[in-house]
Amino acid sequence: MELSVPDREFMYSGHVACPGCGAAIAMRFVLKALGEKIIMVIPACCWSIIAGPYPMSTLRVPVLHTAFETGGSVASGIKAALEVRGDHETTVVTWAGDGGTFDIGFQALSGAVERNEDFIYICYDNEAYMNTGIQRSSSTPYGAWTTTTPGQDWKKMRKKNIVEALVAHRIRYAATANIAFPEDLINKVKKAKNMKGSRFIHIFSTCPTGWRVPSEMSIKIARMAVQTNIFPLYEVENGVEYTINYRPKGYLVKEYFKLQGRFSHLTEEDLDQIQEMVEEDWKLLLRKAGVFSGS
């Protein structure tokens, strides 16, 4: 069967991601979509390790590993340098985790997007500080256990809506993507590559280790996040034009939650509450997209 996924690989085997790592899959898809004329910035995240220790690299593209909070700023500098050198072709891509995007790197990202720096910022979101051992981030969803939200102290705040935060910057392009939807993901990255200005892609990436799920369930769970509306697939151009890419058929969020150890402490009432929260968010998104739904 012909897949509309480019054949060429820009990643080598032998990286050190955990088995079933969603971030590894996400990277593979993104690189396939981007092709070779890129420079990648990787602030501190799981991928700082996954890419391999000196003198190895698992990526076939130039990579600058940088400090945690510098995804937006380092990329700005690279782009400026390329322009000065007369290279208007190479795409600068930042590849950051949720911590480096939602939390510590948010300022630099916001600054870069406000300046409309010409680069693509990709956040692979595994919903906690996984590299350091599963600590909560502002991307950790309501209800989740992490090593810093243990026991009854499970996270009782909502996940920050990073895409909407960037949309508020009137960013040229913002999109969500998911490792279980490779063609959608690749199309979005390709689309972003052909634009100018700041572009943001938020990729949902399962972390089997941190979410307490079997490695073989990585894709299944990622897919369910979309099917349940927990992580809708959509894009926003220029901060105003919303497109919803996938209209789920209404799976219940509890089906998603029940598969994951990080949510095992939640009661039926908690799950009902989360269902309401998800529906509320979904309706809000539909409103923004100009879709009025009776449900």
Partner: peptide, 16 residues
């Protein structure tokens, strides 16, 4: 400097 000069392919992760 910490700069790569080879691929990760010598790392045979099949042993995991």
């Amino acid at each position: 400097i910490p700069r790569s000069y080879k691929t990760s392919e010598e790392n045979k992760t099949g042993s995991w």
